[in-house]
């Protein structure tokens, strides 16, 4: 293992240009993948924010006994799909309308806006089927006059979400595949540049494990360095975009570690495959 590390470091110092080139290539492949990841991540969180506004509103008939509505609110809050329930009285409804539509405040007179129960749904229950099922259960109450949840809007949002997920996964796979192919071929170049060492090792009777080890270490280190460099690049880009374009979210710690380790893993596997080809003979 010590020998493997020494040989790997030696390869770096003997061919600094080639090593730098492979690290940069790995970094840029991962950078492209990382940018895609950032865009996907932010689209997702934007969508999630919009989704949070999915709510079912049940309008309450005038003159309903407040105790009945209060009891209903308690029941509804216990639905498994429900995140929160809020009772909006007639007065509150009017105030809100005035606030939101300030210049038209004269239009409203007390009593023309009904009280309502506003139900927000948990994540994962904001699709049309669940929304519909919740609203049907609200209809059961006698005092409920009318129910609104923006059916069309919920359906469009849901479609958008499905399409975005599918596109994200397939594009992500394509990006990852391209990155793996590019990284694989740079590593193969590095292995090729050292085919002399490999030939001599074979000749003097080194076992395949011994021959492989330095290359695996080298590939791992290159992948790791490339991953870290890609991290820096995405961070800089992210800061730039944040300052001049829009505020966005960055990867969390888990994704960062995963990304960098992923780079190292690709380097490791790429080396294993390339050296394996050299060793496959006889």
């Amino acid at each position: 293992m010590k020998l493997a590390l020494r040989e790997a470091l030696r390869a770096f110092s003997r061919a600094p240009m080639l090593s730098a080139l492979s690290v940069t290539t790995i970094a840029f492949s991962l950078f492209a993948f990382g940018l895609f990841g950032l865009v996907a991540l932010n689209l997702r969180s934007a969508l999630a924010q919009v989704e949070e506004r999915v709510e079912v509103r049940a309008f309450i008939a005038e003159g309903t006994n407040p105790e009945a509505t209060a009891a209903a609110v308690g029941d509804i809050a216990a639905f498994p799909e429900v995140a929160s329930v809020r009772l909006v009285s007639e007065v509150q409804a009017l105030e809100r309308a005035r606030r939101e539509l300030g210049e038209f405040e004269d239009v409203f007179e007390a009593g023309i806006l009904p009280a309502s129960i506003e139900v927000r749904l948990k994540e994962g229950f904001r699709d049309p089927t669940n929304v519909r099922s919740v609203s049907r259960r609200l209809e059961v109450y006698d005092f409920v006059d009318d129910i609104r949840y923006g059916e069309e809007w919920v359906e469009k949002l849901y479609k958008l979400r499905t399409i975005a997920t599918a596109a994200g996964i397939s594009l992500g796979l394509v990006f990852a595949l391209v990155a793996i192919i590019i990284i694989g071929s740079t590593i193969r170049m590095a292995v090729l540049a050292r085919s002399r060492e490999i030939a001599i090792m074979r000749l003097v009777g080194a076992t395949n494990g011994f021959i492989r080890a330095p290359f695996l270490v080298e590939g791992f280190l290159k992948g790791l360095l490339g991953g870290l460099l890609a991290l820096v690049l995405t961070w800089v880009t992210f800061q730039f975009v944040g300052q001049y374009v829009v505020q966005a979210t960055y990867f969390d710690a888990r994704l960062i570690v995963l990304g960098v380790l992923g780079g190292a893993l690709i380097g490791l596997l790429g080396s294993a495959v390339s050296v394996g080809r050299h060793l496959g003979r006889v």
Partner: peptide
């Protein structure tokens, strides 16, 4: 078939190290 970046003794030692 020597390794150009290693001295004579390193070339010989290499054959021992890798086994």
């Amino acid at each position: 078939r020597l390794l150009e970046d290693r001295t004579a003794e390193q070339n010989v030692a290499f054959a021992l190290e890798v086994i």
